[in-house]
Amino acid sequence: MTDRKRKELTISLLGIAPAVLVLLVFRAYPIGSVIWNSLTNWDGLFKHDFIGLRNYLRIFRTDYFWKTLANCFIMFINVPIQIVIGLVVSMLLYEKTPGWRFFRSLYYLPQIVSAVIVGYLFAIFFSYDGPVNELLRFAGAPKLAIEWLGRRPTAIGVVITALIWINIGWQGVLMLGGLSSINPSVFESAKMDGANFFQRTFYILLPMIGRVIEYSFIYSVAWTFTGLFPFIYSITNGGPGYDTTTLDFLVYQKAFREDSALGEACALAVILLAIVSVLTLFQRRLSDRANSWSE
């Protein structure tokens, strides 16, 4: 009996072995390595001495780090906006407006296109001679036709617009899924009782899909820290100055674009890792959600 049990256990372990092995080699090892290297003055070549926390201390002294961090927090504006728009969209979809399936498909479209392509389209659209300015000039407001990507507020605005634009569909579909799990009879009876759209929204829908919103919020915040690279790369390239550089872009910049900065790049990566890990700890509900799927 114990022999059989042991054999069963061995088979189970062998079953998860490939996944665990891949994650150990391609996730755990690099993370360990990055933490170790963040404590060295590695220049990408042969200089590789332990220098303790000096990289971190230097990073905390620089202006660009704090600016970059500030940019990340400013970029968070995209999260509430996309959630609100996504929520409104999902509720309207839920009301089964004519053609709602078509609109749902349409809104989701940007999600399946590569973020870089979306980024390049935004860069073209908001370039000085691009369609947006052309429209503004045509509409008789040439004063508004400015260099969108040349100044911090407008450049960040363009990036945020892109983030919202690409995510509305995702939010809409996600929230619609949440709404669909609500028992329709609750909703119908409220409608019968003469509750208008806003009453239905605030008193019935929002409380019931609170968990979905919470999930979406945490997910989107984590995404804002780690998923912005292609947008920044294609729209502003982090510029002007460090005005639109985000932490994930900065790691790439330091590691693969500038000389002699690999130790520092690793330290930045560790900081990014720490932030994302804290967010992930908040995310325990995530697995609960998945568990409820099959029901």
């Binding site: 260099e147 040349g150 100044r151 911090r152 982090g238 510029g239 002007p240 100055g241 460090y242 005005d243």
Partner: peptide, 10 residues
């Protein structure tokens, strides 16, 4: 990197 900011006076 910062030349655009100098041009625009920021």
């Amino acid at each position: 990197r910062f030349f655009p900011n100098i041009l625009t006076g920021r």
